[in-house]
């Protein structure tokens, strides 16, 4: 029943099954779907999948960068090396921490703002643009900007000490593992809220008012209405946001590279900065590829699990 008024971008994105209900067997020639697929598929397979396979292959070699040089096959050596490499584990932990600290606020705050903006009003588009502004700004620019804001003599310290009178404003945010991760997460949240807000806003427009009104009649308070009516209705959107943010969280790179460079002493290294260092500073592409493959596998499994989770709920509703 909720079906036809769902926020479409997001709802079916996470549930391939949705297509199944509406799909009809077409009698059109068997070749038709492939004609539709062809242009994108050719590009995708040629320029993304093939290099992916090559990168995967590299991870089993002591890869020599030079064109024409022979590389030595070393089996799983690069992978066992990662397992025994403390910096790899720290990078994995930091990527995980980033994901864990930056994803929930983006979801909660994004949803909160979307709820506040749900009602149509003249100011709504203005707020929408303001909150979305960070999303459209490049990662390089905002990373430099936040490095600058979190500098010892930056605005954050000034605001904490002289405006809010919390502490003496002498925190060196970017010099310690945890404070630096907080600064990096703050950037992630600040930049990401607008994106999740937009998806939720779209989803909320699809929640039938009749349902909410019925809930009001039943005497449900705000929280109950949210929990019983709104939340189930935006569940697919929620799923989509979670999956995309988790993928993005594990792939954090530019902000760390530009804000701390993985320092001090490798304390804030995340998986991708470590991979980048191995590949492009030490020219150890085999090892870099192995790290990338491990990351991809982790992210893929996590995403599959989440999609299954949210899809499962979806089917229950039918």
């Amino acid at each position: 029943m909720i079906d036809s008024t769902q926020p479409q971008v997001v709802r079916a994105a996470v549930s391939p099954v949705a297509a199944r209900t509406t799909r009809r067997r077409r009698r059109a020639g068997r070749a038709t779907p492939y004609l539709f697929l062809a242009p994108a598929l050719v590009l995708f397979v040629g320029l993304i999948v093939y290099p992916m396979v090559r990168a995967f292959q590299m991870s089993f070699y002591d890869w020599k960068v030079l064109a024409g040089a022979t590389s030595t096959f070393i089996g799983f050596d690069n992978y066992t090396r990662a397992m025994g490499d403390p910096v790899f584990w720290r990078g994995l932990a930091n990527s995980g921490v980033y994901m864990a600290l930056s994803v929930p606020p983006q979801i909660v705050l994004g949803l909160l703002i979307a709820m506040l903006l749900k009602a149509k009003s003249p100011s709504q588009p203005v707020y929408r643009v303001l909150f979305y502004l960070p999303v459209v700004t490049s990662w390089v620019v905002v990373s430099l900007l936040f490095k600058y804001l979190f500098a010892d003599k930056g605005v954050i310290n000034w605001a904490l000490a002289d405006v809010l009178h919390l502490g003496d404003g002498s925190t060196s945010w970017l010099s310690g593992r945890w404070t630096a991760l907080i600064a990096i997460c703050a950037l992630g949240v600040w930049k990401g809220i607008g994106w999740s807000m937009m998806i939720f806003l779209a989803a909320l427009q699809g929640v039938p008012e009749s349902l909410e009104e019925a809930a009001v009649m039943d005497g449900a308070n705000r929280w109950q209405r949210f929990r019983v009516v709104t939340l189930p209705a935006i569940r697919p959107a929620l799923g989509f946001v979670v999956v995309m943010l988790v993928i993005g969280g594990f792939n954090v790179f530019t902000s760390v590279l530009l804000m701390t460079g993985g320092g001090p002493g490798g304390q804030t290294e995340v998986l991708l900065t470590y991979m980048y260092r191995q590949a492009f500073t030490n020219l150890d592409f085999g090892y870099g590829s192995a790290i990338a493959v491990i990351l991809t596998v982790i992210v893929f499994l996590l995403s599959l699990a989440q999609m299954r989770l949210f899809r499962g709920g979806d089917e229950e509703e039918r």
């Binding site: 500098a151 010892d152 970017l174 010099s175 460079g261 001090p264 002493g265």
Partner: peptide, 11 residues
């Protein structure tokens, strides 16, 4: 100053 130990936020 801790710029020495990699505080990228130091002057």
């Amino acid at each position: 100053p801790n710029l020495l130990t990699g505080n990228t936020g130091a002057t």
